[in-house]
Design a protein around this nucleic acid. Structure first.
Length: 277
DNA sequence: GCCCAGGGATGCG
DNA sequence: CGCATCCATGGG
């Protein structure tokens, strides 16, 4: 794999451990469109237009360094997979979704997105987020930016309800009113336990959502978000009917350690995509 | 009509 | 602490 960064694009020839469709479709990001061999990806107020084939990926964007980090291009996924594939449970999942990369997205955007995600499905999550962008985000000409915190502070409970948040509308309103730009900046500098504590103090954020925010928004890899799919994976692999997600989270984080976040995404994508039990 | 979706808040013991 | 119950909404 060779990565070249030019003025307005990143060119990846002979991509290894990087599949655009897998990376976009594994549930870590909600603002994207795939059309054949092209994709458009949005983060904050930024946009990347991507064309991809078997031996080439082109990421066209004004913000090359942002999307270089966004797609985690500095990390050697070959090494990570080499370790994880020794795990007999994980091997088929890595075989299936070995082109997944863990995205480095904006923390605040992840807080809003994953509050919406609770007990929800990806189609509805995407629609709600699009609503918030088109009603509260800046008009960038041919798309809308993700609303800034101060823009979203103008939204009412009714607005969130109109966005399809259902019973999460009140939680979102409270959290958006409570947090400040300074809180978000400070959050990035805190040690893990304090980051976790802050996130759990927000309405609509529990253990699973907090772990997703840490993984996709703060680059923390020794967390293992447990949702309904991971719960199914766990029961499938252990031949149990465990429902205690705290226990499952603890066990899986202990098992995969600093590679938990990667393992979790391989599992999630494989089992959900194949709709296994 | 029931079940499910990248679960969390609340109340009760 | 652990545990049960409730929570909007749209698609299958």
């Amino acid at each position: 794999m060779k990565i070249e960064t030019l003025n307005n694009k990143i060119i990846i020839t002979n991509p290894q451990n990087f599949d655009i469709i897998q990376t976009l479709n594994c549930g870590q990001i909600f603002r994207f469109v795939i059309d054949g061999n092209n994709a458009v990806v949005f983060s904050k107020d930024k946009r990347a237009d991507i064309s991809f084939s078997k031996n080439k990926i082109e990421i066209i964007t004004k913000d090359t360094s942002y999307f270089y980090n966004f797609f985690d291009l500095k990390t050697d996924y070959g090494k990570i997979k080499q370790k994880l594939i020794k795990d007999k449970f994980l091997a088929p999942a890595i075989e299936y979704g070995g082109g997944i990369r863990i995205i480095n997205n904006d923390v605040y955007e992840m807080i809003v997105s994953f509050i919406i995600s609770a007990n929800n499905n990806i189609g509805r999550i995407k629609k709600s987020i699009e609503f918030l962008c088109s009603h509260f985000g800046s008009d960038m000409g041919d798309y809308f930016a993700f609303p800034t915190l101060n823009q979203l502070k103008t939204a009412t409970i009714k607005d969130f309800s109109n966005a399809g948040l259902g019973y999460r509308a009140e939680q979102m309103f409270e959290t958006i009113q409570k947090i400040t730009v300074q809180d978000i900046e400070k959050l990035k500098t805190l040690p893990l336990d304090e980051q976790y504590k802050f996130l759990l103090s927000l309405k609509g954020v529990g253990e699973k959502v907090a772990n997703c925010i840490l993984l996709f928004g703060l680059g923390v890899k020794n967390v293992f978000p447990v949702d309904t799919w991971i719960n199914k994976v766990y029961n499938n692999l252990t031949q149990t009917e465990e429902t205690d997600r705290k226990k499952i989270t603890k066990e899986l984080t202990a098992r995969y350690g600093n590679l938990s976040g990667y393992a979790q995404q391989y599992f999630f994508y494989y089992y959900r995509d194949n709709k296994l039990k």
